[in-house]
Design a protein around this nucleic acid. Structure first.
Length: 151
DNA sequence: GCCAACGTTGGC
DNA sequence: GCCAACGTTGGC
């Protein structure tokens, strides 16, 4: 089982939205590296740290779980959709997503500042300067520490 | 709202 | 294939 971190702006889709929906398809990823993680390395049962970006404060707010292998992102085919991409064809999809399920909302936000100031987790990818990936792997040792910090 | 960082696009 | 221009992300 692998651990991941998904970023989302709470104004677009927050952990509370996921708690309400119980599950959702993670669409709209339009970065090749993030797509490759989902398509090639993500599997059912993997755990997801849900991260609020552009938030006050930004940070990890909860836990979700991958409930499907990656499959084509239909929003890429929809001209009316904000994430429409003419490069993605139904017989050769460019973009993929996975189904995720809500697990829990942490009792507190583990802010980016706290991550950067905690030696055991300060090397997490999400804390790296200029890191703009919206889907990224989390090392198991870091995942353990974050879970401990959240409880 | 500013702007640094970075990915993508497109002219050549 | 280079690289400048441009658009987006996301912390602050």
């Amino acid at each position: 089982m692998n651990y991941w971190l998904f970023k989302s702006e709470p104004r677009s889709y927050s952990i509370d939205d996921l708690a309400r929906d119980t599950k959702t398809f993670w669409d709209g990823v339009r970065n090749y590296q993030a797509r490759n993680f989902m398509r090639d390395d993500m599997h059912i049962g993997d755990r997801i740290f849900f991260y609020h970006s552009n938030a006050d404060p930004s940070g990890i707010v909860g836990l979700a779980e991958v409930t499907s292998e990656a499959y084509p992102d239909q929003t890429a085919f929809d001209k009316m959709d904000h994430h429409y991409d003419p490069k993605s064809k139904k017989d050769n999809p460019a973009w993929y997503g996975v189904d995720i399920m809500f697990c829990k909302k942490f009792s507190r936000t583990i802010s980016l500042e706290e991550i950067k100031n905690t030696s055991a987790v300060k090397d997490m990818l999400v804390a790296r300067r200029g890191m703009r990936l919206s889907v990224m792997p989390v090392e198991e040792k870091h995942a353990m520490r974050i879970l401990a910090m959240a409880s």
